[in-house]
Design a protein around this nucleic acid. Structure first.
Length: 474
RNA sequence: GCCCCCAUCGUCUAGUGGCCUAGGACACCACCCUUUCAAGGUGGCGGCACGGGUUCGAAUCCCGUUGGGGGUGCCA
């Protein structure tokens, strides 16, 4: 337990973890650790969520993936909103007793009707002075005081709201249950939260919350509203339209380090990034430097392309054995791990995500004797020249006699053959590549053939020669 | 409707009145390297929304316009 500031992160379980949530979690985490404070996790659970413990576990897993570990001394929780229900109602009662809230018997339809008739917006304070007590169907409303509410925001400065634009909002529903806004504030008070760092979409509700803190006799926390993440249409990232599930990126082979780094550069630039000519920064550096005052004010487009660029860099930075390890998890279980390790150094530089690996090297793992499925376009291009088939035959001859089956020798062998055709390596390798891999692009050819082995390589080469003789790739 | 926020290359951003001929990153283009594809290297394209002020001087301060976003429930 740390004595410092207490940052809260309060996700609602929905079955998937939003990348925007991941970013605010990370920001809270960086701050909490840097200032020696606490990251307080509170699950805003609902009835549905309570019946689905795996949703809560999903949040914990997602947080752990991006480096926010429940075992860390700066981590506290998880707490659950539902377990504070009594406190929510007690607070409501206090507000009523103190005259800071009052009951109203208007239904929402009636409120709407009144607004329409009077030509006003929302609720007009109809029951403010009617002295109603609690009763079935009656809601408890907060008595918004006169004046103005100034929200002092760490990223935006002072934001002033005229209290006349804030209607007497509901605290407790007609059925006796507290609304989210009240629950939220009471929870924050119960958990002694001192810093609320969250997405900008919550800014308009902040004056209500601040008023509630004050009415409950507490000093409001420090607020910070960071810009939202948007899609290419500049709309808030939504589950419906956009790819926002952190788990999905994880499953597609994005590295947590890359995701974390990218997320943190949205709305903030690590100091020194410009001088270094790179935005790739370690978490240690991020944690040491991140501060709310430096966060941008405008929404940021979540650019998967740039994420991919970061991811590629992180993959390339991995030590080879670690790359083999992590990539191994993405491979079909029946693939020979030693064989993969042999080709690994040659594909590490060619990836955006780990997920792409199988498609790039599947030809190394076809069962022996398999019929090569040629890509039509690749075949047509490689075997269109009339030298292709004869060259392949010559290559087979040379390769059959190779004693030391190594990439270097394979290269020399092809070079010997191609000199007779006055070809450059770039051209000459094409039919060989298509014959062996079925495609015109892929990992370095000679290294691939070395891994494939002599007999299987020769078999495939012969197969292609036979196919040219019969007039096509299929 | 009402309230709030925002506005620098296509995108993410640096910039807090003179260091700005507006810098970097991603993307894009060209060239180099090259065993296809990448990676790497070099170079290029490309921006202060608009209009008024303030000031000797404005991307930077003020006002307005326009544009974008968010909020606005007896949802969470």
């Amino acid at each position: 337990m740390h004595a410092g500031p207490r940052f809260r992160f309060a996700p609602s379980p929905t079955g998937s973890f939003h990348v925007g949530g991941a970013r605010t979690a990370l920001q809270n985490w960086a701050l909490a650790r840097r200032v020696g404070g606490t990251f307080v996790l509170r699950i805003e659970d609902t009835d549905e969520a309570r019946n689905r413990p795996e949703w809560t576990q999903g949040i914990l897993d997602a947080l752990a993936w991006i480096g926010i570990s429940a075992d860390d001394p700066h981590f506290e929780g998880p707490y659950f909103q539902s377990s504070y229900a009594d406190a929510h109602l007690a607070a409501a009662q206090r507000l009523f007793d103190d005259g800071l809230a009052y009951y109203c018997d208007l239904t929402s339809e009636q409120v709407q009707q009144r607004a329409k008739d009077l030509g006003i917006n929302g609720y007009d304070g109809y029951s403010r002075d009617r002295g109603l007590g609690p009763g079935p169907g009656r809601v408890l409303r907060f008595r918004v005081p006169d004046g103005a509410t100034v929200v002092d925001d760490l990223v935006r400065g002072e934001v002033t709201f005229d209290n006349t634009t804030i209607e007497d909002f509901v605290l407790v529903r007609g059925n006796g249950t507290p609304v989210f806004l009240l629950a939220n504030v009471v929870d924050d008070i119960e958990m002694a939260i001192t810093d609320v760092v969250r997405a900008e979409e919550h800014l308009p509700n902040t004056p209500k919350q601040q008023l509630l803190w004050q009415a409950l006799g507490r000093q409001a926390p420090r607020w910070a509203h960071v810009p939202v993440l948007v899609n290419e249409q500049r709309k808030k990232l939504s589950k419906r339209r956009d790819k926002v599930a952190l788990e999905q990126y994880r499953d597609e082979g994005y590295l947590a380090e890359a995701m974390v780094n990218y997320l943190m550069t949205l709305g903030w630039t690590p100091p020194g990034a410009e001088a270094a000519g790179s935005e790739i920064v370690s978490w240690t550096e991020i944690e040491a430097a991140f501060q709310l005052e430096d966060v941008t004010h405008s929404p940021a487009f979540f650019d998967v392309k740039k994420l991919g660029a970061f991811n590629g860099e992180y993959i390339r930075m991995l030590p080879l054995d670690e790359f083999v390890d992590r990539a191994g998890a993405e491979l079909p279980v029946d693939w020979d791990r030693d064989r993969f390790a042999a080709i690994a150094p040659h594909i590490q530089q060619r990836l955006t995500t780990l997920r792409e690996i199988p498609d790039k090297i599947d030809f190394l793992f076809w069962p022996d004797g398999a019929v090569v499925q040629y890509d039509d376009e690749s075949w047509a291009k490689a075997f269109d020249p009339d030298w292709a088939a004869p060259l392949l035959a010559d290559v087979i001859n040379v390769y059959e006699g190779l004693v030391d089956w190594s990439a270097d020798n394979l290269k020399v062998g092809l070079e010997d053959v191609m000199s007779g055709y006055e070809l450059k390596l770039g051209k000459a390798q094409a039919p060989v590549r298509v014959a062996v891999t079925g495609r015109s692009v892929g990992p370095p050819l000679f290294e691939s053939m070395e891994v494939l082995g002599q007999s299987e390589t020769l078999r495939r080469l012969s197969m292609a020669v036979a196919a040219t003789a019969s007039g096509g790739g299929r």
